[in-house]
């Protein structure tokens, strides 16, 4: 990935990627750490701008760390309700019909085939 490619991406997609890094992390992250976590050629100032915007929207919180801030995702007050609805949906099994899911359930055979496909000794092409 290059700077040029990331500069062309819509702001919403960059926000999504930055938020994903914070949720995947196990603690608050500084802009520099987020930039490294993104693995993309984003400028640090761009990352800082996005983090500030997310903070303004109330999606992430921050605390002082050294001369700057460390950011972490906000657990929304309705999070509990959302979680409950999520498990209801997962139990119903209807969702896989109406919504396009990333991955379906695996059978034991599928698991074996996947591991074989991912095995670098047989998988490198």
């Amino acid at each position: 990935m290059t700077d040029a490619k990331d500069a062309r991406r819509p702001a919403g997609e960059l926000e999504a990627s930055v938020l994903a890094v914070l949720w995947a992390a196990d603690g608050p992250r500084t802009p520099g750490q987020v930039q490294r976590g993104l693995g993309a050629g984003l400028a640090r100032t761009t990352v800082t701008t996005i983090l500030t915007r997310l903070h303004d929207k109330g999606i992430v919180a921050r605390r002082r760390q050294g001369r700057g801030y460390a950011y972490y995702p906000v657990q929304d007050p309705q999070g509990l309700t959302a979680r409950r609805m999520h498990s209801e949906l997962a139990r119903g099994g209807d969702r896989e019909r109406v919504l396009a899911r990333f991955v379906e359930q695996l059978s034991p055979d599928d698991e074996r085939i996947l591991r074989e496909l991912l095995d670098p000794r047989s998988g490198e092409r």
């Binding site: 819509p10 702001a11 919403g12 997609e13 960059l14 926000e15 999504a16 930055v18 938020l19 994903a20 949720w23 997310l54 929207k57 999606i59 995702p73 906000v74 657990q75 929304d76 309705q78 999070g79 309700t81 959302a82 979680r83 999520h86 498990s87 997962a90 969702r95 919504l99 396009a100 899911r101 990333f102 991955v103």
Partner: peptide
């Protein structure tokens, strides 16, 4: 209800899922 950044909604759940 979940936090949204751009088009991404994150649901805090121990089950890996995406749609």
């Amino acid at each position: 209800r979940g936090p949204a950044a751009g088009d991404l909604c994150v649901v805090d759940s121990p089950h890996p899922d995406a749609y």
